[in-house]
């Protein structure tokens, strides 16, 4: 920058240095900038002190509190779990079976095979059962709660109440179908 340019256009143009032609004005930082800066520092200190040294709720406390509420909701739901007769009505309801089939294709097929013939999980079409005797409520319990450590996931937390009932009805409807390549029977035969 040539020296001619440097005519003082205002009072802040008063610095004497020049670096490779670069000069500096000395305007004050904008007011809003300074105000937000001070506010953020005061807020920051206050926030940290409140949450670390005083009784700000910790993240773990908050989580526990929220989980308790949710647990309570779930208890309500569990207490009115479906009965055998509730679900047997679904067996003759084509819409329910169709919806159950959809759930099965989405969630169960990867382990039980496309026709329930068994793959990673057991064959669901034969009359051998590992858990219970193959009643609708027995199936409901396994599907709802899963079998931890055997690799059958619990579906209660994942499926809606209606989906759960429908897929149970669909599994029941598979009984006695004889798909190709069935997995060898597991569990006890129920006559």
């Amino acid at each position: 920058m040539s020296k001619n340019d440097s005519k003082k256009d205002n009072e802040f143009d008063n610095l004497s240095h020049e670096y490779d032609g670069i000069r500096e004005y000395d305007y004050p930082a904008p007011n809003w900038w300074q105000i937000i800066f001070y506010v953020s520092i005061i807020w920051g200190i206050g926030y940290w002190v409140y949450y670390t040294l005083y009784d700000g709720e910790t993240l773990r406390h908050r989580l526990d509190r929220e989980l308790v509420t949710i647990q309570r909701e779930k208890m309500k739901e569990a207490s009115n779990g479906p009965s055998e007769s509730d679900m047997s009505a679904l067996l003759s309801n084509p819409a329910a079976i169709a919806s159950g089939k959809e759930v099965f294709t989405g969630k169960c097929l990867s382990c039980h095979g496309d026709h329930g013939q068994g793959l990673i999980g057991p064959n669901l079409t034969d009359n051998f059962w590992i858990h219970g005797k193959g009643t609708l409520t027995d199936i409901y319990t396994v599907v709802d709660k899963g079998v931890a450590d055997k690799g059958m996931p619990p579906w209660g937390p994942i499926l809606s109440a209606a989906e759960l009932k429908n897929v149970v009805a669909f599994v029941k409807s598979l009984q006695g179908t004889h798909p190709a390549n069935p997995k060898a029977p597991q569990g006890e035969e129920i006559k």
Binding site: F12, D20, I22, R23, E24, Y25, D26, Y27
Partner: peptide
């Protein structure tokens, strides 16, 4: 460096720097 060089004007505020 490059903004004041390319525009050929002084930097806005030394004290802000």
């Amino acid at each position: 460096y490059y903004i004041p060089k390319a525009v050929n004007k002084p930097v806005y505020s030394y004290r802000l720097s």
